[in-house]
Simulated assay, not measured.
Amino acid sequence: MNQRHVFGQVFTLETAIASFVFVTILVLLLVAVVRRRARPGTEPSQRTERPRLESYYLGALGAIAVFLVVFTALANQRQQQSDHHLPTTHVDVTAFQWCWSFGYPDSPGGRTAVSGTCRHGDLPTLVVPTGRNIKVRLTSKDVIHSMWIPALRYKMDVFPNHHNSFTLAFDREGRWRGRCAEFCGLRHRTMDFWIKAVSPDEFRKWVQSHAAGATGAAA
Rank of each mutant, 00 (worst) to 15 (best):
F183A: 10
A75C: 00
E43H: 04
R35Y: 06
R189G: 12
M1T: 11
N133T: 10
V143Y: 14
G103E: 10
D192H: 14
A197Q: 06
F193R: 07
N2Q: 11
H120R: 10
V23L: 12
L168S: 03
N2A: 05
Q3D: 06
S101V: 07
T190N: 14
A217I: 04
P200Q: 07
S55L: 13
P124W: 13
R119I: 09
Q9M: 12
G121C: 09
N76G: 06
R52V: 08
R78G: 02
G8F: 03
R153C: 09
W148R: 09
Q46V: 03
T130R: 02
V136N: 09
V27R: 00
T15D: 12
R78D: 12
V91A: 08
V70I: 15
Q81E: 10
C180M: 08
H188T: 15
A60W: 11
P51K: 02
P40W: 05
R177K: 14
L30V: 04
G116V: 06
A151H: 11
I64F: 04
P150V: 07
A75V: 02
K135Y: 10
Q3W: 12
R153S: 14
G62H: 00
Y154H: 15
V70H: 05
F183N: 13
A181L: 06
P160H: 12
H145L: 12
V27E: 02
S107F: 08
G59W: 05
V127T: 15
S82A: 15
A211M: 02
R172Q: 15
M156T: 09
V33S: 08
G174M: 09
M191Q: 15
H188G: 14
V136E: 10
H84V: 13
L29F: 10
L28S: 01
F203C: 06
R50C: 01
R78V: 11
F71S: 02
